[in-house]
Structures are given as C-alpha cells and as structure tokens.
Amino acid sequence: MSLTLADARVVTPEGIHDGWLAIEDGRITHVGHGRAPRAGHSLGGRYVVPGFVDIHNHGGAGGSFPTGDQDGARAAVELHRRHGTTTLVASLVTAAVADLEAAASSLADLCDDGLLAGLHFEGPYISRARCGAHDPALLREPSPREFERLVKAGRGHVRMLTIAPELPGALDTVRAARDQGVLAALGHSDATYEQTLDGIDAGASVATHLYNALPPLGHRSPGPVAALLQDERVTVELVNDGVHVHPAMLRLACSVAGPGRTALVTDAMSAAGMGDGDYELGALRVTVSGGAARLAEGGTIAGSTLTMDVAFRRSVTEVGLTLSEASVAASLTPARVLGLDGQIGSIAAGKTADLVVLTDELEVAGVMRRGAWLTEPR
C-alpha cells in the first residue's frame, strides 16, 4: 500500500521543515521538503513526529503487565498506542521467582505477536533501603544462575534488568545480563558514587528513572545520580509527569546528558487512562488521587498514570526542550537503547512508518503504526 502525507511540519533530529512523506508497505520511502509531488493525505500543517518508544511501562487501562494477564496487557498496549506509543516494553515488578517466570512466559507470547517490544525485570535484585513500591519481603540477592531462569522464561524477549550494583552478586549478574544480550539498568539503589561506577564498568548502560529511588545528589557524597549523569556510557530514564521530578531537576539532567542520553519513560501502571481510585502494583495496594499513584500504606510513589504524549509535551512546555530534542528523547534515544534505531525512532527513508501527528498544542491528532493508521487525523 502506498500513501503520501502532505502539508506536514516534519520533526527530525536536525530540525523542523515543511514537507511531505511517502510511505509504501509500512516503510518511509521519501522525506521531502515543500509541496508534495502528488496529491496525498493532507495533515493541514500539523506536526509529524516518530512514534514514541517507552522502555519502562507497567500497564494502563486497568491492565497490569506484572500479572502476566494477556487481555489486560492488550488493553494497556491499546491505551498507550492511542497516546502515540508505537513501541512498548512491558515492565514487571518484584515478585517470587516462580511468579516472575510465569508472567514472563505469558507476556512472551505477546512479544512473539509483535504487540510488545520486550520485557523488563524491575527487581527483585534491588535495595531494601530504596525499594519504593516493591514488596521488601520479596527482594533477593542477585544471582546470575537465577537470572538465567528468568531469561529462559522470557524466550529471548527479555530486554532489561534493573539492579542495585552494591548488592552481593550484583556485578556478576550485570556481566551475565550483558553476555545474554540483556541491558543492565542501575536503579532502586543505595550505592555510592564508586559502587555505581563499578556497575557501569561491569556493563550497566541505563539509569532506571533517574533521581527516583536513589540517594539525592550531595556535594561531598555525590552518590549514583552524579555517576549516572556524567558517564557517557549511560542513558538516563526520566519520568516527566510533574510528580516524580521537579522541572528544574529535569532541566539539569537534560543539560548534562543531552537528548542523546535521555530517554523519556512513563513508568505507567494500571491506572493510566483510568480515574482516581484503588489499584494494585504487584502485590501492593495503590491509591490514585489527582492522577498521582502512591502506595496505600506509606504514600510512596508507585509508578504513574503518565502517557508518552504528556511526557513529550511537558518536556517542551515545562523543561524547555525543542521539538526536535523532545522527539529524540521520546523516540530515537530509547530506540537506540533497544538496538532498534536503524528501524524506528526518527523520520527517515527506510525506517518503519511509526508516526504521531500533533496539533499546535502538541495534542495527539493521529497515530500510525507500520504504515497503518491506528487513529486517522481528520
């Protein structure tokens, strides 16, 4: 099927231009400037950006990836697609190993079908002191052999493991993850600056939701945030929902890491797209009030109700990124983390036609995935 998208403001890593796109068999074949050479679907001067790539997401629309329930997972994916996320990694939370294996095996079916882009184990190898909305009774010391069981359950679809580098066995597990093609992400950690660098040297390359569930920056004890921000080998996740991180600290992270090492993520849980009320994240009860998700006991932040379009928009309006910079952070950088930047993440000839059409107010007007409209702009 051939399609021309005309009268667009095309957002690329290099900037924005008035132009058009040609799409054939699900791929972008031409990215043009000015007037399209033939009649096509007019976007009416609206922005077109690459589909968003979310590498840290626990669910939405009432569905929770940690349960492994496939119907709930499908509902969550559909919700996030409507908000522009065309590539999504399903994140699990700390649980008994047998339960993690069962959930991974179930969700691997959806990876086989192309619904999910992979699986992320956030826990159980994290710090008790910084466990956040993870059940401390289920935390474990890292074990390369045990992690191999989880990878096997995921049938080749495990993409990332969040781990605290200071724990016994952590560095060996980071190396084991690297050797199996799994990204090691440092997070939910009470590590020192030096222990964090040890984790990076062992092969860790992602910071799980920077600032959150980590010791704060200190001028005498810089801790993991300074190490993760400064090291060029690390991509930092940021949850830009107005709850997790103050805009000033988001600006600081973006100024140090730049869009090329910044990945906007949602950390969304089942309440995304739903109203305030009571929910669950793993084995823990969560109360959502005013759109903020917190543990019913203790009030700790428990994921978010964020969607990527809101994270993108806030990165422009609250953080001060340009549209091109925001697009890199929401699409190209996370695609690179997954090793998929040759296929998705930016608007370029030869790449998959995963696209989001945005109004002047940066609201979603249309979503295309693999050359087919999921929501067609009018």
Rank of each mutant, 00 (worst) to 15 (best):
T85Y: 07
L362A: 07
L110Q: 12
V11H: 14
R370Y: 09
A257E: 03
G199W: 06
D135Y: 10
V31C: 04
P124A: 12
D172F: 05
T87L: 00
T94G: 10
T300M: 03
L171Y: 12
V236M: 01
A293W: 08
A207N: 12
R370M: 01
G291M: 02
Y125R: 00
V357G: 07
L295F: 12
A263S: 13
Y193Q: 11
P37Q: 05
T162L: 00
T94H: 06
A329I: 04
R159C: 09
D360G: 13
E101I: 06
Q230I: 01
N240C: 14
E101G: 15
L167Q: 08
H188W: 07
L214E: 10
T196W: 03
L21Y: 05
T4R: 08
E148K: 07
A98Y: 00
H83M: 06
T29R: 03
G51F: 05
H33D: 07
T85H: 08
A137M: 01
R27Q: 11
G181P: 05
A272F: 07
D25L: 00
V174R: 01
G114F: 11
T196C: 00
G187W: 10
A227V: 12
L355E: 03
G342E: 02
Q195T: 15
L281Y: 09
S327K: 02
D354G: 13
S127A: 14
V151C: 14
V97Q: 13
L186P: 10
A283E: 13
P168E: 09
G72L: 00
T375C: 01
P50R: 06
V93T: 15
A348P: 02
G34P: 01
V89G: 13
L79D: 11
Q70Y: 02
L107I: 14
I301C: 03
H30Q: 15
G84D: 01
Q70H: 05
S127C: 06
D54I: 05
F312H: 11
G181V: 07
R294N: 11
G303N: 03
E363Y: 09
H33G: 10
T262R: 02
L332T: 11
T162G: 07
G273R: 05
E14N: 12
M1Y: 08
G19L: 03
D18T: 08
S270V: 00
G62P: 09
H120G: 11
A353D: 02
T4A: 12
F52D: 04
N57G: 04
V286I: 00
L295S: 12
F121M: 00
A176F: 06
G118N: 03
